[in-house]
Amino acid sequence: MHYQTDRKRAVGKGSAHSGAEHHWFMIVSSVALACMIPTWIYIFGNALGSGYEASLATMSRPFPAILTALVLIVGMLHFNKGGRVMIEDYTQGTTRKLLIMAYTGFSYVMIACGLFALVKIAL
């Protein structure tokens, strides 16, 4: 006699071996990006091509710097997890593993480089 509910027995037995956290992360990050991206495009679009002094002035102000950092972090994690779903749909085995590693590596390198530059500009 097992005192387990049907749900308890089913958890972790699906092909993903886990719950809906991955999908939920995509929903949360997509809503966050949807709120941030229009303003960020406006800021970056105006900064690009405005010359060294003006670009530096823009990116050292708190709002553009923090927004750029947030867009970069949330955007790259969204890319990493979204890309992973795509990789898992189209590839298998070693190719899949290597692609997931490459996507993850690219995501975090972009975040690290971007944050380093933003901090250096701000200080």
Binding site: G49, G114, F116, A117
Partner: peptide, 27 residues
């Protein structure tokens, strides 16, 4: 686009000379 944004940011962080070259290309 993210890659070239990072190139732009790093150039901006490293000074006017690097930035001018990068900005010339990116515009």
């Amino acid at each position: 686009a993210v890659f070239f944004l990072i190139v732009w940011l790093l150039a901006l962080a490293s000074g006017p000379e690097a930035f001018e070259t990068v900005e010339w290309w990116l515009t």
